[in-house]
Design a protein around this nucleic acid. Sequence first.
DNA 1: TTTT
DNA 2: TTTT
Lengths: 149, 149, 149, 149
Amino acid sequence: MSVNKVILVGNVGKDPEVRHLDSGVAVANFPLATSESYNSKSGERVTTTEWHNIVLWRGLAEVAEKYVTKGRQLYIEGRIRTRSYDDKDGNKRYITEIYGDQMTMLGTRADNQGSSEQGGATQNSGSKSTPQVSEPDIEEPEGDEDLPF
Amino acid sequence: MSVNKVILVGNVGKDPEVRHLDSGVAVANFPLATSESYNSKSGERVTTTEWHNIVLWRGLAEVAEKYVTKGRQLYIEGRIRTRSYDDKDGNKRYITEIYGDQMTMLGTRADNQGSSEQGGATQNSGSKSTPQVSEPDIEEPEGDEDLPF
Amino acid sequence: MSVNKVILVGNVGKDPEVRHLDSGVAVANFPLATSESYNSKSGERVTTTEWHNIVLWRGLAEVAEKYVTKGRQLYIEGRIRTRSYDDKDGNKRYITEIYGDQMTMLGTRADNQGSSEQGGATQNSGSKSTPQVSEPDIEEPEGDEDLPF
Amino acid sequence: MSVNKVILVGNVGKDPEVRHLDSGVAVANFPLATSESYNSKSGERVTTTEWHNIVLWRGLAEVAEKYVTKGRQLYIEGRIRTRSYDDKDGNKRYITEIYGDQMTMLGTRADNQGSSEQGGATQNSGSKSTPQVSEPDIEEPEGDEDLPF
DNA sequence: TTTT
DNA sequence: TTTT
């Protein structure tokens, strides 16, 4: 009876960290930046950046491992999840993450690799550079508890 | 160059707290619950609830003050914002909030008030019980009729 | 490499028509109304209604058959699809439809049935009146061509 | 009491046609393609393309006039609107359009211009190549700093 | 009519 | 920590 949906277009802040759980399930984590600009009262242009903690599971994590790199522009659709953990001092802390259910690579390869032999709008051929992917299904990301975050 | 969008349909956990800043600007805060169900490996039906910290400004805050109450089912569209603050021990803490840009009251009055004289699908008359509102914008693209398509 | 997403909250205009294809696949069709209000230049409050042609497949169609009725308030998430057909005069015509991938019943039962023994915000017990459902997966709605629209 | 929202990421099919109404209001029209791939029953990879009729007003139309060109990858957020018109034979016809409320240019300039002196991830400097824009609204919730959370 |  |  409810909806929890997030849609982000932003830039990857660091190369993903990908773990493979004992169960064989892959999990990827990386930060994604979105930014907003507005004119302050005093007239300057102000830009603020928001950092999102992206978490991808299974197939999406594997795609991230292969194709997602720092600087990449991505579309991510997913849901918000806040979880608690104990910090080194035994205090309960909270962290909010975005569990991605859908991911689309934006821009072309030239854009994102800096290899730069080619700068046009055409996508690189062969090696299916940047697939669009989604979660296999509505399978729940269980086994979550196994993760030593 | 980026997008930070959240869409929620959930139930209000507590009556909003509404503050009026010195500037006259109103700010409302309240928790909104979304829930998800899935079948665990062991076969039971598991429901997890996610709590979202909703923040509304100005006109939306004023609408919340008047119409949003505990239990209410709402549609909220907004953006994610994580801010830091120092806790009582001087430690830096983070909290993630949803700044609402658009809000729609769901269900009918009977639904949400329990007064219940009337249960049909028709909306309550008079007193425009549950207005739909958004941040200032909403300039209508009129003049449409002028177009010689 | 692309995204085609629609999010609607509106009211069902007519009870769904549900067909069962030879393959056993169910398909449901019904209109959903969304409305917008704004103040015209001349100062009156103007409300315009938009009608969306909703199409649901398989499990979602079956849920619609059981639970979706005229007047019901629904959340629908899906994608836009425009298809052509030949009208009685042999002219090519186009129709745009929303293929729903996700559906959530809004409001409570009292709201939507008019039976009205109960009007509070609590959901009906037992018989899990209004389930939230989604497409089994990314299975393509093939067999579409079989439909005598 | 309703929501009519569309989110698209796709490629511009033709340079926009921009009109300036007598009132001074600008209107831009262009097609945007989104595509979907899936594996058919017979095992081949099938890609279908959906064409969306984008309509932008005022400031957004002016941005489109300056920056949107054929091939460009765009994020568009808006709403569905179906309108009728009479065709040359006097028959009533319908067309469904997407009225854009928000637009974001995706990829970098190198991506979209083919000028190609440069292929890396860095955006072109100067001439603020690809602004992100939205309909008039966007009043910032400043005064935030005043809040004694 | 785009893009991969 | 990204990007413009």
